[in-house]
Amino acid sequence: MTPASQKAVEPTIEIENLKTYFFTRSGVVKSVDGVSYSVAPGEILGIVGESGSGKTVTGMSIMGLVEKPGRIVEGSIRFKGEEIANASERRLRQLRGGAISMVFQDATTALNPVLRVDTQMVETLRAHKKISRREALKTAEEMLARVGIPTPEKRLKSYPHEFSGGMRQRVSIAMALLNDPDLIIADEPTTALDVTVQAQVLLETQKLCREKGTSLIWVTHDLTVVAGLADKVCVMYAGRIVESGSVDDILDNPQHPYTIGLIGSIPSSNTRGRKLQQIEGTTPSLLNIKPGCAFRERCWRATSACQEEPPESSFGPGRTVRCFHPCLDGEQYESAGLNA
């Protein structure tokens, strides 16, 4: 993807300085604290981060599904140019499952256990389009076939528990595709699957997005998934995007110490027989987080400057790093104590 083609078309979704806070009894949890990104039609964005980094809440904010005591306190979410942050419930309902759909992490719990698959698919269609039950069933059947479910006309009559894990996740992906959405938010949809099934699901999702020009936001904690799937990547840490860029830039030339740590902790043939790198410490509690860089207590490059909020610096189009001491080309692996 060249920068020129990114500029030419209006992005499907554009988020600017989004802040979603949870006002709990023990304090304010800043789950998403000033996140900005945009996804063009047909583009796949990977959002990577550890549990609790705010990646799921970002997706829920777009859907308008942030539950009390949480709410979007600041920022804008523009969907095809329309501002939908804090839009009316009526408008949000129209968008959900229609133009914007979501695939959840665990299809076992995301599908209603007591309703048949056809019921759950038909209702999704009929919530957005005035079509007959028969037409809806036909669409549902086609969609199941497209995500690779054998004998879809029979499987429609099944209940979720009668599918295997991989098939169940395909059903929920099929459900997300039903209304030809412009944007799909996939929240770790392959985490619960076997590696082989995961690869199949990834490949098919990618194919479907490319064919239809659907934008995809793929939320995951697994960098290897992003490597094979995404066009660009945002790395989130403690509610902020610490680094973003094209997938090649992020993987080959990471600049934020956290990203370097993440990449270093992936086992590969180079690291065979050696101790895997780990990032010392744990993700900070998002409750009343201290000002300054949230990663500084785990960072080997941290100095007193990191007590301040690091600004976001841009290193070319779509390439940003939020760090006072970014690792420049070639130096990162030595500093991290890793061998390239």
Binding site: R96, S101, M102, A110, N112, H128
Partner: peptide, 13 residues
């Protein structure tokens, strides 16, 4: 529960 959240995410009335 998760499936209630997905019911809302599907845009049901």
């Amino acid at each position: 529960l998760d499936f209630m959240r997905s019911a809302r995410a599907k845009g049901l009335h």
